[in-house]
Structures are given as C-alpha cells and as structure tokens.
Amino acid sequence: MTEEAVVGAVHELLAGARGGVVPIVAAGDPVLRSPAAAYDGQLDADTFAELVEVMRATMHAAPGVGLAAPQIGIPLQIAVIEDLFEVGEAVARARERTPLPFRVLVNPRYARVGSRTAGFYEGCLSVPGYQAVVTRAAEVRLECTDEFGHEIDEVVRGWPARIVAHETDHLGGTLYIDTAHTRSLTTTENYGELWSDPTPERAGQALGFTVDPR
C-alpha cells in the first residue's frame, strides 16, 4: 500500500468510527499477514493523535490489553497496550501479571533477555473465540518510540513482556497461533470453564501438550 493510500485509509477509518470505536480485522485478512510499514510521520499530528485514541477506545471496548494498527486495517508499526484488569492473587503471582499503564509503541522491536521462558494461555482480538498456550521469553528488551517521539529502551518482565511481544509480532505479520502449542487450543468458553488455572499444567496433562520449563 502506498503512503497516500495508507493516509487515505486512516482518514476513512476515522470518519467511520462509531463512538470512537472501529471494527477489528479478523484472521484471514491479508493485512494481518503482511509486515507493517515503519511509521515515519506519514500522518499529521492531529490525525496521529486521533488514530491513537481510536485504537485505545477500540481496545477497551473489545475488551483487550493490546491492539496493533494492522488489527484495524492500518499497515503501520503502531500499537497500544494497557492492562489494568483485576486478577486473583494466585494468577497474578504465577503469571507475573502486574498493572500495565496505557502506552503507545511506535516502531517497536524486542529481544529476549536471559533464558527463562513462560508458557501461558493467551488470546487475540483478531482470532475471537479461542485461546492457546504460547511459550515466550519471560523478559524482553523493548526498543521503540512513544507517541511523542521519545525513545524507549527498557527491559519488560512477566505478563507485560508477553503483551509487548504479542503486539509487536502483529506488526511483522505474525499471529500468536503461529507459535502456540496446537494441542492446547480451546474455545474461550471451555477455557473459562475448564482451564483458567493460574498455570496450564493441568490442561497440558488432559489435552496432551507439554509446557516448556520456566
């Protein structure tokens, strides 16, 4: 998609927002399987700010903890993340799930830090109705800029690291199902009824998959 076409697509998307919310693109759409273009100021400041707010509102409405621009049909390397959901103490401890204030990631990339990994169920707003276990690095180094152009270079740990990796993967055309333990795949309904333990070990025993050691 040319730069002119991308800008036009953004304006069309924003014009069609209802209550500040836009539709989320589902798996099978080519925009989710193509690397997004680096953001280098293709949008004027007001349009960029409006796009970020629409992404935030759409993420909240879903609801979810992250949203990448390709998930609303825009092939630019922009993502928003936020996780302030309340979870039980056992879940928070096992998954290292700590509050994650709202952040905008522009042109993000991440690299594994250390050898520790963690395997947990995760889902995706573009693959509605299902969840699967993905083993990811427990710590990653995040490099990007924020919505104001300030450079970010920091180590992110636990559940926030999983969110960063999941959303950054979207910008390269990768969905979580590409690296998930396929035998762990479950409907969201069955996950809630059967497999919402703090860790997926019991699901692994019943469904026939092995979670990589931490």
Results as ranks from 00 to 15, higher is better:
residue 187 T to F: 07
residue 171 L to V: 08
residue 162 R to M: 12
residue 122 E to K: 02
residue 141 R to E: 07
residue 193 E to T: 15
residue 130 Y to D: 03
residue 166 H to G: 11
residue 153 D to P: 03
residue 100 L to N: 12
residue 195 W to Q: 04
residue 141 R to N: 08
residue 139 E to H: 11
residue 115 S to C: 05
residue 101 P to C: 10
residue 175 L to K: 10
residue 110 Y to S: 00
residue 171 L to P: 05
residue 165 A to H: 08
residue 168 T to H: 06
residue 153 D to H: 08
residue 143 E to S: 09
residue 93 R to I: 01
residue 111 A to L: 06
residue 191 Y to Q: 05
residue 102 F to M: 09
residue 104 V to P: 02
residue 150 H to G: 08
residue 141 R to T: 02
residue 184 S to D: 02
residue 140 V to N: 03
residue 148 F to W: 09
residue 149 G to C: 05
residue 129 G to E: 04
residue 140 V to C: 05
residue 92 A to E: 11
residue 135 T to Y: 00
residue 175 L to Q: 12
residue 171 L to Q: 07
residue 102 F to S: 11
residue 199 T to I: 07
residue 142 L to P: 01
residue 187 T to G: 13
residue 182 T to F: 01
residue 168 T to S: 14
residue 149 G to H: 04
residue 103 R to F: 12
residue 193 E to M: 13
residue 190 N to K: 14
residue 198 P to D: 11
residue 139 E to Q: 15
residue 106 V to Q: 04
residue 121 Y to F: 15
residue 97 R to S: 11
residue 170 H to M: 07
residue 187 T to P: 04
residue 167 E to Q: 14
residue 102 F to A: 12
residue 165 A to C: 14
residue 171 L to K: 03
residue 176 Y to E: 02
residue 173 G to R: 06
residue 157 R to A: 15
residue 179 T to K: 10
residue 140 V to P: 03
residue 113 V to M: 11
residue 103 R to Y: 11
residue 196 S to E: 14
residue 188 T to N: 08
residue 196 S to R: 15
residue 127 V to C: 09
residue 137 A to W: 05
residue 166 H to L: 12
residue 162 R to H: 10
residue 198 P to R: 08
residue 198 P to Y: 09
residue 200 P to Y: 06
residue 91 V to I: 15
residue 197 D to N: 15
residue 184 S to E: 00
residue 128 P to H: 07
residue 151 E to L: 01
residue 163 I to R: 07
residue 161 A to N: 02
residue 140 V to G: 04
residue 99 P to F: 13
residue 183 R to Y: 01
residue 195 W to C: 03
residue 170 H to L: 07
residue 100 L to G: 08
residue 201 E to N: 12
residue 111 A to T: 14
residue 101 P to Y: 11
residue 130 Y to V: 13
residue 201 E to T: 14
residue 197 D to P: 05
residue 200 P to A: 06
residue 119 G to F: 02
residue 138 A to W: 04
residue 186 T to Y: 03
residue 130 Y to Q: 10
residue 167 E to N: 08
residue 184 S to P: 02
residue 178 D to P: 01
residue 183 R to W: 00
residue 130 Y to G: 00
residue 153 D to L: 10
residue 121 Y to G: 01
residue 98 T to K: 15
residue 160 P to N: 11
residue 158 G to D: 09
residue 174 T to Y: 13
residue 135 T to D: 03
